[in-house]
C-alpha cells in the first residue's frame, strides 16, 4: 500500500489524529491509539498508578546507579540501624543497606511478576479460547484439567512443586504460573462461548478462514481486554504470592534481595526494630496499589460497553 508510511511526522498534530476520515490505515490506527490514551489519561487515579509502576520499573532498571551501597555488603557492627544519612532506610540484621536492597529487590520481585504474567496470560488465553471455540471433547478435557488445578489449594500446590525441584527464583516463577493460569482460562472460555455464536464470527467463517485464524485473529482480541484488566488486578496477588513463597524460604534464596524474603528474615525484629520489615512491606503495598489502580483505569478504557 502506497503512502501509508508517510504518517509519522504528524503524530503531534491533534487534528490529524482526531480526524473523522483518516486517509490511511496507520493514521486510523494512531488516531485510535490517541483516543484510548486521551480517555485513559483523563482518569487521575489510573494515571497515578501508571506513573508509580513506570517509576518502580525505572528504579529497578537503574538500581546500580541509584543504590548507595552494595546490597550484599555486610556491616555487622552496624546491624538494625535506624534510618540515617548514611543508610536512608536503615540496615537489616546483617548490617546491609535496606534502601539498596529494596532497589535490587525490585528487579527480582517485579521480574518474577512480569515473568509469571508473560507465562500465564498467553497460556490461559490459549486454553480458554480453544476450549470455548471447539467445544465438545476438547472443551471437556481442557476444562476438567483446569478444574483439577483449581481444586488444589494454591500455596500447597506451589509448595509441593518447589519442594520437588530446587528452591529458587526460576522454580518459584514456574510454581506461581502453574497455580495462576486456571482463572484466566475460565475467563477466556466464558468470553469465547458468547463470542463464537455471534453473526460476526459466522461471517468470518464464511470467508473460509481456518479455525486457527478465527480463534487467533478474531476471538482472542475480544478476550484480551478483560484479560489485561484481570492481569493487572492479579499483579498484586502475584507479588504477595511470590512474597509468601519467599517468606517460606522457597522462592528467591538469601542473600538475593527479594521483597518477600526481606520481610521473612526481618520478622524476628518486628517488635523492637519495626522499620526493618516495614520498608519492604511498604514497597509491596505501593506496587500492589499502583497495579490495581492501573488495572481499574484500563478496564474503564478497554470495556467497549462503557464507550
Amino acid at each position: 500500500m502506497s503512502g501509508v508510511r508517510t504518517a509519522w511526522p504528524n503524530l503531534l498534530d491533534r487534528d490529524w489524529l482526531l480526524t473523522d476520515s483518516p486517509g490511511s490505515r496507520s493514521q486510523a490506527l494512531w488516531g485510535q491509539r490517541y483516543r484510548l490514551w486521551r480517555d485513559f489519561s483523563a482518569n487521575r487515579l489510573a494515571m497515578a498508578g501508571l506513573i508509580i509502576v513506570l517509576a518502580l520499573v525505572a528504579m529497578a532498571i537503574a538500581a546500580p546507579l541509584l543504590a548507595t551501597h552494595n546490597p550484599a555488603q555486610q556491616e555487622l557492627t552496624n546491624r538494625l540501624a535506624t534510618p540515617s544519612a548514611a543508610h536512608w532506610l536503615g540496615t537489616d540484621e546483617l548490617g546491609r543497606d535496606v534502601y539498596s536492597r529494596l532497589l535490587f529487590g525490585a528487579r527480582v520481585t517485579l521480574g518474577m511478576v512480569l515473568a509469571v504474567v508473560a507465562l500465564v496470560a498467553p497460556f490461559g488465553l490459549a486454553i480458554g479460547c480453544i476450549a470455548g471455540y471447539y467445544g465438545g471433547l476438547v472443551d471437556k478435557i481442557l476444562m476438567r484439567t483446569t478444574d483439577v488445578v483449581l481444586a488444589f489449594p494454591r500455596l500447597i500446590l506451589a509448595l509441593a512443586f518447589v519442594a520437588a525441584i530446587k528452591p529458587g527464583i526460576t522454580s518459584g516463577i514456574i510454581a506461581i504460573a502453574i497455580t495462576t493460569w486456571p482463572p484466566y482460562a475460565r475467563l477466556a472460555r466464558a468470553e469465547t462461548l458468547t463470542i463464537r455464536n455471534t453473526d460476526y464470527i459466522a461471517a468470518v467463517r464464511l470467508t473460509g478462514a481456518s479455525s486457527a485464524r478465527i480463534v487467533l485473529r478474531h476471538i482472542t482480541p475480544l478476550c484480551l481486554g478483560s484479560l489485561i484488566v484481570r492481569v493487572t488486578l492479579d499483579m498484586s496477588s502475584i507479588i504477595l504470592f511470590a512474597a509468601s513463597l519467599g517468606f517460606l524460604g522457597l522462592g528467591a534464596q538469601p542473600p538475593s534481595p527479594e521483597w518477600g524474603t526481606m520481610i521473612a528474615t526481618a520478622r524476628r525484629f518486628f517488635l523492637e526494630q519495626w522499620w526493618v520489615p516495614l520498608m519492604p512491606g511498604l514497597a509491596i503495598f505501593v506496587a500492589s496499589l499502583a497495579f490495581n489502580l492501573l488495572g481499574d483505569g484500563l478496564r474503564d478504557v478497554l470495556d467497549p460497553k462503557q464507550r
Binding site: 453473526d199 460476526y200 461471517a203 468470518v204 478462514a209
Partner: peptide, 30 residues
C-alpha cells in the same frame, strides 16, 4: 462462490474491527 448477508447489521460486524479490516479479511484469507 457462496457468501451470506445476515439479518442484524449490528451483530454481523466485528465490534473491534474497522470497516477496512472487515473488508480486507476475505482478501487475506483467499
Amino acid at each position: 462462490r457462496v457468501q451470506m448477508v445476515f439479518q442484524d447489521p449490528y451483530g454481523s460486524l466485528h465490534p473491534r474491527q474497522t470497516i477496512d479490516r472487515a473488508l480486507s479479511e476475505p482478501l487475506i484469507v483467499h
